[in-house]
Design a protein around this nucleic acid. Structure first.
Lengths: 339, 339
DNA sequence: AAAATCTTCCAAAACGTTTCGGATTACTTT
DNA sequence: AAAGTAATCCGAAACGTTTTGGAAGATTTT
């Protein structure tokens, strides 16, 4: 049988109220009673019933995270890093994390609504923001706390952490241009994703600044997976005049592109330059190692989580908008100067 | 304001009881009343308060997953695949998933105790079983439902899914031996992990069956990360007479080993053979692509989850013990015959 | 016409906790 | 000795739901 307050009350001869107040360290309970109650509670192995507590206190000490997926899975290392960052910070701050996956659309909407109305979580971490992001409007209308990794199209006001993707892609293009590349292709993410916008913008600005011609046939959209990168890069490489460099908008697609190049007998880092974005742990160990932009995903997860919890607790936010500068990690895949 | 049963009762002129029963489709409510209640509930945007429901019903429709970590993170793609499998199956069956990470020891124990006593979840999925696994005894003593991915040392009786690692490693050794390798090294996992035991056993049995000498100096323990694989493989490669093949016990270490070899100017798949275990999505796209053992992690996650939920619901289990045969995926990293 | 059976409804209790608003006792102060 | 103040304690209400055990009325059976 599970021990409840009543049992402790009986064992100590005190009332339920007093036991409760003793355990919560109220100061209208004598030191004596407190220590008695504590001792007995420990002896009996008491742990509070979470639901009763939550029903009463009206908050859950739980944050929610609904990962948007297109296929059924989210095995993207990008998410695992982020998830780890969020989860561990949450644990440190005494919060649980409720995780699920939904594909954007009716299902996702319903999941948010249910969680909000059922007060299942105290707030949400939003990841991979989209241009017209209905999640944001749902949460804002319900006046429900959330913090996001990523910005939104319209200048909606909510706390976020984001990296300056535009800046990052400019760095990459500048790097490639400085190596002598003139036909630089881009593997872009699906355009409804907010970061697709920023990265593509950076890519284009980078070309302009390097006095290079933008060629739309060299911008292909991939689904962020290795397979997608492979397929789109194959198309690029089979063009009559293929690019000499491919800037992928995430590492996974870059790996796919590397495979496509290697399958065509090209030596990545010599015959062709390939770059990524994210710097997932893998990229340091691939062959050749991947030139990419470092995002401290684990830390970012922690930051978003902390923001959210401050928001939930009604504490003032240290910073409401955080924009990080990604760092260019030059490795082998971009190679040396091509001339 | 959040809509509750009382509001619907008021709006319809029925009692709270009737409203509750109408919404739950009891058959002592007239069809008329039911549809009225349903309509009004929809109009008002009613969603039940989860905690009140749980407090009353005494179950949570939530499964727990505590990922054991050594460092602070769990960005291992192995876990993300598995997590995805568990989470999606759980969602399909109407369950939430509560995820956290703890490093084995006091912290982990406390997390389990709190979740059990606070009835925070209905059951646990246990991953990465250990030889003396206190989690199992805690759960069994509390008579708390759980299903595991992995077996345990003592023949404790609990439902599990596992792959036959011994068989898998034998396949690998056989494959390497058939290519002419005689000095085969092994990158083993920390020995307290249950699967370390099975994989090492398979490795040794494989050697015996191939009439090869086991050489303990060729068995090194790594921490399952790329970095660990890199470091341990470096030691092997710097031996006076280095191995010609390295069988790593997971893909991540295999990738690390590949880097170590490549950094020494060796061509993997030609100068040295390297194999992995798990077949994470990455391994198909690495260069060279990795010969490894395929485990359907996503499906395994789903299976364990389903077992657990059957257990929770008191339904008979389709199968209580599931042992899967991993499949050898021969790719480039093991190369061709070496003579 | 009385008794039995359905059908439809509901008041009240229960789940385990926290909190509100006193109540009691003991100790100080007048 | 009476009045005031602290220090402890506790009964009852509340959180929002489900379930128990019946009640009321309509219909059928005897």
């Amino acid at each position: 049988m599970v021990v409840k307050l009543k049992d402790i009350a009986q064992a100590t001869g005190k009332s339920i109220t007093t036991v409760s107040r003793a355990l919560n360290d109220y100061d209208d309970v004598s030191a004596e009673t407190k220590s008695l109650v504590m001792r007995v509670a420990k002896e009996l192995g008491y742990t509070p019933n979470t639901w009763a507590q939550r029903l009463q206190k009206q908050h859950t000490e739980t944050i929610g995270l609904i990962i948007p997926t297109f296929g059924p899975r989210f095995s993207d290392p990008f998410f695992s890093e982020l998830l780890a960052g969020i989860g561990n910070r949450a644990a440190q701050l005494g919060y649980d994390m409720l995780v699920s996956t939904r594909s954007p659309g009716e299902e996702e909407r319903a999941a948010y609504q249910a969680a909000i109305n059922g007060r299942r979580v105290d707030g949400f971490v939003l990841v991979r923001t989209r241009r017209q992001d209905e999640r944001i409007s749902i949460l804002q209308e319900a006046d429900f706390p959330f913090a996001a990794f990523g910005r939104a199209e319209e200048r909606l006001d909510f706390p976020f952490v984001d990296e300056d993707s535009t800046y990052g892609m400019k760095l990459v293009v500048e790097h490639l241009a400085s190596l002598g590349h003139e036909r630089i292709a881009c593997l872009a993410p699906p355009s409804e994703l907010m970061f697709a916008h920023y990265r593509l913008q950076g890519f284009k600005e980078g070309l302009t600044e390097a006095d290079l011609q933008a060629d739309n046939s060299l911008i292909l959209i991939g689904d962020l997976t290795q397979r997608g990168g492979y397929e789109q890069a194959s198309k690029l490489l089979d063009l009559p005049s293929p690019p000499t460099a491919i800037a992928a908008c995430n590492d996974l697609m870059a790996f796919g592109a590397m495979s496509a190049a290697q399958d065509r007998g090209l030596m990545v880092g010599k015959d062709i330059a390939i770059t990524g974005f994210d710097d997932i742990p893998m990229s340091e160990f691939s062959h050749p190692s991947l030139t990419t932009l470092h995002q401290p995903l684990y830390q970012i997860g922690g930051m978003v989580c902390e923001m959210l919890i401050q928001l939930i607790r009604g504490e003032p936010l240290d910073e409401k908008y955080i924009l990080l500068k990604p760092e260019l990690m030059v490795r082998q895949s971009s190679g040396l100067s091509i001339d």
